[in-house]
Design a protein around this nucleic acid. Structure first.
Lengths: 342, 342
DNA sequence: AACCTAATTGTAATCGATTACATGAATATA
DNA sequence: TATATTCATGTAATCGATTACAATTAGGTT
């Protein structure tokens, strides 16, 4: 195991200086044709590879970006990350991933950790609903050294760009669609509405009801986590009501699935007795055999790509020219069996 | 946007040397209680954070590892990566992800790229079936500077550790199970058998047939990619045979799903007319309403964790003590509706 | 012959840390 | 009192690149 060759090794071998070697390798200033040729050949021969770490220290650019997500093993987040990686790699960047598992202190810690390894930017889907508690994020915002781009789960912060989908529209369209199917009492499985995304889906749901003359009923909104079990529990509650709903708009596909399971096992039919619409277009919603699940596509791949593009623009500019972008993608309602009465 | 504070800034402010500051911060050698206290306070006050890039250059350790996978947006790979991240972060490492999309030249390129940013190791699921063509990998193997650990898709290379599952056993158990259900003509949807994983599943399948007195029939083995469409196509071929099979063991859950769809649409019943077993335990296999899909669990989270542990052991040792580990996890057959006749 | 210019290459600082070795002061020992 | 020892800190090299500035050489001009 010999050490990697450096420009000093090449210089020594050729009786030159590291400076000359560096210049020759970079095709930079006027280097005579002969020495350039010689250096290039020798570099090849000695298996020289540029040490990007040294370059990063010197230039102040690490060409690494950090991506922070609650978890990576969900179709949504891994698709976003795919988009980010595919967009950034061709520009010379590497993607460092961090998971928070929705824990504030971990998020805090990972932000600091990324800053310390000198990432050129951070793209994150924030886990931490209350901003004040997040010291890492606050520090980041305060000294404005590292560009930050939110995707999906964002916070409204002046000067910080974001790429999200129009969750309000997603909620509105889903609800409107259910109304169009003739549903009158539409329940909503929400999630922590301290997050903009869940609040907006909820608000879209309410607005659609309002616009169509249906009175909003607080008792039809149930807070659930994004998993099958919670969906089941919520459906149970709804079915046991004196006046059960005739439709459910769930802010999560997993909760929608749980609800569907519970409803069917209770002897009801979908969509005849109850229409269901989920959110995210997880692969399994399409694969169901009887009741393919209507849902809202968030275009995670595009979201990742866009977030990466916004980052690239921000690092490209000097800080005084920087413009804040708040890009909002348009979601698409995908109507499937679980909400198609006709 | 002011610059980040360095130990020189602290030193200047206190009339000390960077060396002293460094020592004080590291609690290292004998530094007087007073100056240490002073330095620590000042560091806090000036928002000092260690520049890991400088440290990495000096120490030769970047505390970054590269993870190379065909793609990240599949449940299997994202779960492995989750395991890797969770295991490595507490030890101070960051995870850089790279996707190859099964393209040899990209794999090649990304290996080089990771080496250049001085990763401390590479964990990869190899995309490139023929080793000789992969210059990047060969260079990596030749100078043995960067520890390499294969997971899932490996190549047998002397001195290179790996973490895989026992694909032979997976294939064997699945096939044996189908035989136990009374199936006599069992087809196999394989995949490129230049990859060990697919070859081993295939070999396990053959051995199970052999051990149970069933003659192997070449025409029942169909090569498919891991997607729904290819599964459909394969099932169509099988159904159109003069003597169609009565069971399918698919090396992919997605192909299994496609096959199931095609079979059902052709008017056959599962599992009565045809038993089906997939591979990977993708989430949707559990979520099916009528025909939950039998499959083989590969424990991706454990695989990622183990791969990370192997890496940690390898970097921990000096190179002469290093021992090669080839860890083989045991897969678990999960019997569901698609293959349960009784 | 004296001077100018352009073409190459070298010198040395820099990025931000760590650390072997040196130094000076204070204290302990003989 | 002279010397040895310890303690605390400074000096300077190092990791591997880049780059402003300096220096050298060759050739051209008058």
């Amino acid at each position: 195991m010999k050490k990697k060759t450096t420009i000093y090794d090449i210089a020594a071998k050729l009786g030159l200086t590291a400076a000359t070697v560096s210049r020759a390798l970079n095709n930079n200033t006027k280097i005579s044709f002969n020495t350039r040729k010689l250096v290039l050949e020798t570099a090849l021969e000695m298996n020289y590879e540029q040490n990007k770490l040294a370059l990063a220290l010197k230039s102040g650019k690490s060409y690494n970006v950090g991506v922070i997500v609650p978890r990576i093993d969900s179709n949504f987040f891994s698709s976003v990350i795919r988009g980010i990686e595919e967009e950034l790699y061709p520009k010379g960047y590497h993607v460092i991933i961090c998971q928070t598992h929705n824990q504030e202190n971990i998020e805090n810690e990972k932000i600091n950790s990324l800053v310390n390894v000198q990432v050129d930017g951070i793209l994150m889907s924030i886990s931490n609903a209350n901003l004040e508690a997040n010291k890492g994020l606050n520090k980041l915002l305060k000294n404005k050294k590292t560009p930050l781009v939110f995707f999906d789960r964002k916070k409204d912060i002046k000067g910080i760009s974001s790429v999200t989908i129009d969750d309000f529209k997603g909620g509105y369209d889903a609800t409107k669609h259910l109304l169009d199917q003739g549903c009158k009492r539409i329940a909503h499985l929400s999630n922590d509405r301290n997050f903009e995304i869940f609040r907006n889906r909820y608000l879209g749901y309410r607005q659609a009801l309002l616009d169509n003359g249906i009175e909003f009923d607080e008792s039809l909104v149930i807070e659930t986590q994004s998993n099958v079990q919670d969906g089941r529990r919520a459906a149970r509650l709804l079915l046991d009501m004196e006046a059960p709903p005739d439709a459910i708009f769930s802010s999560s596909d997993f909760a929608a699935l749980g609800a569907i399971q519970e409803i069917k096992e209770s002897g009801f039919n979908i969509p005849e007795d109850m229409c269901v619409v989920g959110f995210s277009n997880e692969p399994f919603t399409r694969f169901m055999e009887l009741t393919t699940i209507s849902t809202v596509d968030q275009f995670p791949l595009d979201m990742g790509r866009k977030a990466a593009q916004v980052f690239l623009e921000e690092v490209g500019h000097t800080e005084d020219v920087k413009t804040t972008q708040n890009i909002v993608l348009t979601p698409e309602l995908i109507v499937r069996r679980s909400s198609s009465k006709k």
